[in-house]
Simulated assay, not measured.
Amino acid sequence: MTKIIKLDRENPDVNLIDEAAKILLDGGLVAFPTETVYGIGANSLNPDAVKKIFIAKGRPQDNPLILHIAKFEDLYRYVKSVPKNAVIMMENFWPGPLTMIFEKSDIVPSINTAGMNTVAIRMPSNIIAHTLIERAGIPVSAPSANLSGKPSPTEASHVINDLNGRVDMIIDGGKCDVGVESTVVDMTGEVPTILRPGGITKEMIIKAIGSVKVDPIVYKKPPNGLKPKAPGMKYKHYSPDAEVYIVKGNLHDVTKKIQELTEFQLNKGKKVGIMATEQTCKKYQKGEVIVVGDRERPETIAKNLFNVLREFDKKGVDVVYSEGFGYDEIGLAIMNRLEKAAGYKEIILKE
């Protein structure tokens, strides 16, 4: 049986958090909110506990996990060295939605790292998550608290839908603030490299340390046989039950094309979902239209993206058409997740 508790995100009940911490220390699984998405956590130093994450999610074991810590000094226990740029990044972005990859120390069980000699670590800013890790006194391995391949959970109801009965406890701490997973930056090379975009943008990192690369895999379908160094690099992710297509081009042409495609699918007897924005929603007269956010405030799109994909599942649509978005700032994270949800199925209109 899964115990479900509700906590005030600003002032959580420490007694209940201690109960969750004991579950982690005893080798159990706890789903909890972070500022990005909900995570399913286990004691990183207990291989048997970590293995339960893969079983609960149906997650391939070659997909590495992120270790979550609560204190800066903890980082030095689990990695071999911390380069100067990483220290600057910690000072600027921790606690927060940034994950960094280092060469791991021997204390980190290889089940967390898919057998590689590198480990991904972050320090969450969500008070519930941070307090839980701190009270447990251990690093917590925590991928997103969803069934593998499904849209990541940004509300407790999403976790309950996917994992009730598969974990020992679910902590309801309200809606997540960022809505997409953390930015993952590989710090082991000469120049730091973004392997997964997120709430800490490329532009923010450049401002902090002067230079960062973006791995080409962020922009395209991963090749067969890829050995992922970070979560979310290899497998199809974030997908609703429906087929998802992204329509790219001039926004006026995009809305017109989506209307044509919707009409075509409706005539075939299909139920169609349209992922629209505040600026375009009134242009669509048919289909199940859901507003994902405001184009002038892309952070609203990031925050609502996974929830909207899950809403389309609730509505039982067969096909989803989404407008494309820009690749600058947090738009890179939005498009990275959306393209994975679509399995890279795109309709590109000529300018």
Rank of each mutant, 00 (worst) to 15 (best):
A242I: 06
A230V: 04
A230K: 03
K207H: 13
N224C: 00
Y238N: 03
I209L: 05
I205A: 11
Y235Q: 02
A230S: 10
K229E: 13
P228I: 05
V214L: 05
K213M: 14
P222F: 09
I209W: 12
I205E: 13
A242D: 08
V214E: 01
A208I: 10
K207P: 10
G225D: 14
G232T: 04
K227W: 04
K227H: 03
H237R: 03
L226T: 05
D215M: 12
M204D: 15
N224L: 04
L226E: 06
A230Y: 02
K213G: 00
P222Q: 12
K220Y: 01
M204F: 02
K236Q: 15
K234A: 02
K229I: 09
K221S: 10
P228D: 09
N224D: 07
G232N: 03
S239F: 11
I209T: 11
K236Y: 00
M233C: 03
I209C: 08
D215V: 07
P216T: 03
P216A: 02
K220H: 08
K236L: 08
G232F: 00
M233T: 03
K207G: 11
V214H: 01
Y219N: 01
G225V: 03
K227A: 04
P223Q: 07
M204I: 10
K236M: 03
I205C: 09
M204C: 08
K236P: 01
P240K: 05
L226V: 09
V214I: 15
Y238R: 07
K229H: 12
G225S: 13
G225F: 13
D241P: 00
S211K: 15
V212Y: 08
A208V: 05
M233A: 05
K229T: 07
P228F: 12
P222A: 13
I209M: 11
V214N: 12
P223T: 06
K213C: 09
K221Y: 11
G225A: 06
V218P: 04
L226D: 02
K236E: 06
V212I: 14
G225N: 12
P223W: 11
A208F: 03
N224W: 00
K220E: 15
G210E: 11
V212K: 14
G232L: 01
A208Y: 09
K227F: 06
K227G: 00
I205D: 14
K236F: 02
L226S: 04
G210W: 13
M233R: 05
A230C: 09
V214Y: 10
D241V: 04
Y238K: 04
K207L: 11
Y235F: 13
A208M: 13
Y235N: 07
P228Y: 11
A208K: 01
G210P: 05
V212N: 07
I205T: 03
V218L: 02
